[in-house]
Amino acid sequence: IPDNIPPVISSMYVYRLNEKPFNEFTPKQYFQVAGGNGNYTLNKVSTINLSGEVGFGIVATDRHSGNSGLNGVYSIELFLDGKAVYTSALERFSFENSKAINAHVDYPALLNLKRSIQKSFVDPGNPLKIYSNLVNNGRINFNDGKLHQVKYVITDSKGNKSNLAFNVQADPKAVINTPNLPAGTTYQYSNVNEFNSEDVKVVIPKGSLYNDLNFVYKKLAKPQSNAFSAIHQIHNNLTPLHLGFEIWIKADSTLKKYQNKALIVNTNRSSQGGYFENGYVKAKPRNFGSFFIAIDTIAPTIVPINIANGKNMAGLSKMSFRISDNLSGIKSFNGYIDGKWVLMEFDAKTASLWHNFDEQTKPGKHSFELILVDMKENTKRYAIEFYR
């Protein structure tokens, strides 16, 4: 694809880091950007007055010539008075760390504003190997009362460049303080962190936090239906996790006869998996949120698409179904023609399940059975006869 269009810079952000970990409470200022064709300035502003420790962030996209696609930019360089203080280049981005893109961007803004702001400062627990030329991890102190030149250089994969230049006046009066955080417990990103109460235990493994965390826990009332514990609010979903965490929730006495059906759900009633052991249900959610114990006693559903009892399937190359489960998710599916196991193929995106007929299924009458089992061993059987 021909590409001689430089990246588009649409906005710039200033983060008042104030020597504190980045989180959803970090004050940030939005600056409109003017210009185009590789040269950008701040809209109606040439100098920003700043004080103390700040970080910058940028919204930039690469528009290929010849198509309308917006692509990620290849590299972002930030210069202070002509010296590089931050570079990110996406060539060395490895797949096993792809979740850490949540530490590269302003994750609260991604969730709340659906806006992808690339931070130009690096969280201490961010494992990505895409950074170089870092000075103080990209955190800049403006404490000297002087005028400074700041410049972004954004490059796409073909080498087309765009610049954004502006001045910063270090001004001791230009302070924006970080708001007071809610009462919580400080968890260091470099440690294993544990929270224990009578009803819940949480373990955040080392390598899961990207920053030190002011951890907040709340216990909320038990939901009205299909709930066997209180709701446990484990921090909030604005803090991204690299490895998830482990949770043990104490079960009500009412769970007794359903212990093998128990799992943990979030308040959207989305299954987090889990199993019952020694009075608790244990699971490994991927993100913080609010959780409680529920049960799954309902078998999966099977909807036949092109087959019915007694139908002649002679002109058809396959039999098709749509399958689903209400909560814990489908664990296995097995199909049998005339008592012999046959290959069933599944497409998770469309929840479609099918069997392609082969020479094993000769002309004549046949029996077919489909058995679906969910993660809590609830079983659904579908049995018919058909002709070829």
Rank of each mutant, 00 (worst) to 15 (best):
N196S: 13
E198K: 11
V192H: 02
I231K: 10
K206T: 12
K222S: 15
V200G: 05
T185F: 03
Q188T: 13
G207W: 06
K218Q: 15
S229G: 09
T185K: 12
S208I: 06
L181P: 02
V216H: 00
F215V: 10
L220V: 05
N180W: 00
I234T: 07
D212T: 06
N180Y: 04
E198V: 12
Q188H: 14
A183F: 02
V202W: 00
K222L: 09
S190N: 14
S225W: 08
N211W: 01
Y187E: 08
P205Q: 09
A230R: 00
P182K: 00
P223M: 02
Q233F: 03
I231Y: 00
S190A: 14
Y210T: 07
F215P: 02
Y210N: 08
H232M: 12
N214H: 04
K222H: 05
T185A: 07
G184I: 08
N193T: 10
L213Q: 05
K219L: 12
H235R: 01
S208Q: 03
V192F: 02
H232C: 11
F215G: 09
V203I: 15
H232G: 11
K219I: 10
Q233N: 13
D212Q: 05
I234W: 01
L181N: 05
S190F: 11
N214K: 08
V200I: 13
K206H: 04
F195C: 08
Q188F: 14
S190D: 14
K201H: 13
D199S: 15
S197Q: 05
Q224G: 04
P223Y: 01
Y189N: 09
Y189H: 11
I204R: 01
L213C: 06
K206I: 12
V216S: 05
Y210C: 06
K201R: 12
H232Y: 14
S229A: 10
I204Q: 03
K218G: 07
A230L: 06
H235Q: 11
K218T: 12
K222G: 07
N211P: 00
K218S: 14
V200C: 15
E198Y: 12
V203G: 03
A227H: 03
F228M: 07
D212M: 01
H235L: 09
V203Y: 00
N193M: 08
K206D: 08
P223K: 05
Y189I: 02
E194D: 13
K222D: 11
L181C: 02
N191K: 13
I231Q: 11
Q233M: 11
V200S: 06
H235A: 11
N196Y: 10
Q233G: 09
F228E: 10
S229V: 04
L213G: 10
A221N: 14
